[in-house]
Design a protein around this nucleic acid. Structure first.
Lengths: 187, 187
DNA sequence: CGTTTTTTTTATCATTTGTAAAATTTTACC
DNA sequence: GGTAAAATTTTACAAATGATAAAAAAAACG
């Protein structure tokens, strides 16, 4: 997915503002398995996924807990770093060879102060991420693991195709054995 | 908590912008038990809590599932309504007699287009809510119910004082009986 | 202050989910 | 294509959590 479309999906910027923003963005590539962002660091860049898939995870008692998947069009970001300039909780691992668009946080923040359209772009970005995060939180609270698996299957069938089930089980908050049981019952 | 302080906590606005925003805000009061916002509606107002406490809940198979508590300084909002102009998932119940500041969403959105400082205020607001929501999601994924109870006890001891345990159990994602067991073990 | 209602705790039993290990299937790579 | 490695499923057993009911405690109210 190209950068033009990714930006437009977030907020419809006037052409001049869009050009200003695009000037700050470069293309980068990393292989499968690369750790793009690390927990307990203040990360300086954000990324948009042109091609590939990634996951965010935290370590808890030497166990990796996956809590996010991203694919084409999604943003890879340490929210804590971006918003509060604090160390983040997430490691981001690329699960496929990835092509990414890179943007330095400081440059974006500079533009927020100078251009009202880009400020509203930034507002819209945070708002959209907020809705997604809230939806996941509520889903987690209200639905059972089985329901959430079916929801994922419906909303993101490609995630289930492209990501190994151990990560998906972790994301759903259950063990791989439980996920196996759920899948067996659905046949 | 007065409106001056609430706004300042979100984003430090220049005095003229702050006055512009404050002109759109009025004070209202409602009794304990009042349902301020309802699920499956597009809500037109947002509220800041001057005094009192509230919870958000959804209904699932005739059971109320609480997923948020707000107190002095917090914002009561249907994110889906505010951000996407769509019906929200939450009912908001006031758990005490409340004094609130009311702001019409349309008026705020108008100001986002006109005043870069207010646009950045809106960005900051969404970003801060995002961090809070993300923190809760990760906490839910990474920590056990017992750990989350202790976290709540540490971060918001007043919630546990002021809210009945049935709501807190629901918020933690466990039954009231389980919460009782957790509390018994901690003595 | 005493009564009623609501909230919280306790006890018992059933169900779900987790842990560990083995069996099977799929994938990666020489 | 064959072998090794990795991923997934299955099984057996243990631990945790839920459902239900009932008792105890606390709060609300005349």
């Amino acid at each position: 997915m190209n950068i033009e479309k990714i930006l437009d999906n977030i907020y419809s910027l006037p052409e001049t503002s869009k050009q200003t923003l695009k000037k700050q963005i470069t293309e980068v590539s990393f292989p499968k398995g690369h750790i793009l962002l690390r927990a307990n660091r203040i990360e300086k860049n954000i990324y948009f996924i042109k091609k590939g898939i990634a996951r965010a995870y935290s370590n808890k008692d030497n166990i990796e807990i996956t809590f996010w998947f991203g694919k084409e069009g999604d943003t890879i970001i340490s929210m804590k770093s971006y918003i509060a300039n604090l160390k983040g909780y997430e490691n981001i691992e690329l699960l496929e060879n990835c092509e990414l668009y890179e943007l330095k946080t400081v440059n974006l923040q500079q533009l927020f102060e100078e251009d009202i359209h880009i400020a509203n772009f930034g507002r819209r970005f945070a708002e959209k991420e907020l809705i997604k995060t809230e939806e996941r939180l509520i889903s987690r609270q209200v639905r059972t693991a089985t329901e959430r698996y079916k929801e994922l299957l419906k909303d993101s069938p490609d995630i289930i195709q492209r990501v190994q089930l151990g990560h998906i089980a972790s994301y759903l908050g259950i063990t791989q054995v439980s996920l196996s049981r759920i899948r067996a019952e659905m046949k």
